[in-house]
């Protein structure tokens, strides 16, 4: 069966866009989790100064639209002599935005660990850092994982905003073809299926990680 010219053009472009989307998501998700852990820990346990810095960061990036953040990074920074490629601007924007949300999940998980866990470690002679590292963080990770996974799934979908700083990812590629052939409904339904597939993959991987980290008493019962 021969594909129509429309599909012959659409599918390769979408596949190209898919690869770009994945190239955006993977570093953004990892970077977001990393920044989230650092900022979340500072916000939960830091001194007054680091706590204020962390809170300010989270307030700024959760309080402004991602579109605005991307515009500032891509169109605003050149005014002060900083030029970012579209791809870099998008990834940095996603990391900073995602990290702000992740820090909230991490902070909540850290603060939800019962004080007794901390006391138990201190009473055995653990130092402050040993307590945080060996006792608090392993528990917090297990409590934060559902929220962090949710944020990553959300990130997959808002990665489509990279298009507005001219990164040709899934949505951007699709829109070009849709405009060319004036067949918006079909194109965007297919794009929707691509995102659905991506999210399903992410859900599968997150589930695997959850199972690997599963400990009786944390989260659901198997």
């Amino acid at each position: 069966m021969e594909l129509s010219p429309f599909y012959q053009e659409l599918l390769p472009s979408l596949n190209r866009g898919l690869i770009m989307t994945i190239a955006l998501i993977v570093p953004s998700a990892l970077g977001g989790v990393f920044i989230g852990i650092v900022a979340g820990t500072l916000r939960a346990y830091g001194n007054r100064i680091t706590r204020s810095i962390g809170n300010f960061y989270a307030a700024l990036f959760r309080g402004t639209p991602l579109v605005v953040q991307l515009f500032v990074l891509y169109f605003g920074l050149p005014n002060i002599g900083l030029y970012l490629s579209p791809y870099m601007a998008a990834v940095i924007g996603f990391i900073l935005c995602s990290g702000a949300y992740q820090s909230e999940y991490i902070r909540g998980a850290l603060l939800s660990i019962k004080r007794g866990q901390y006391h138990g470690a201190q009473a055995l002679g653990f130092s402050f850092f040993q307590t945080i590292f060996w006792i608090i963080i392993p528990q917090a990770v297990r409590k934060a994982i559902h929220g962090c996974g949710n944020e990553i799934i959300y990130l997959i979908k808002y990665s489509s905003l990279a298009y507005i700083v001219t990164v040709m990812e899934l949505t951007g590629e699709g829109k070009t073809i849709a405009t060319e052939y004036f067949r918006f409904t079909e194109v965007f339904m297919i794009i929707g299926l691509y995102y659905l597939a991506l999210v399903s993959c992410a859900v599968f991987i997150l589930k695997r990680i959850e199972n690997k980290l599963y400990i009786p008493g944390f989260g659901y019962n198997r």
Partner: peptide, 20 residues
């Protein structure tokens, strides 16, 4: 302090075992 705490063990009312 850490030395003191190693020499003086503590048992708590609600156990405080490490849950993980």
């Amino acid at each position: 302090l850490n030395e003191l705490r190693q020499k003086v063990g503590m048992i708590f009312q609600d156990f405080n075992l490490f849950d993980h």
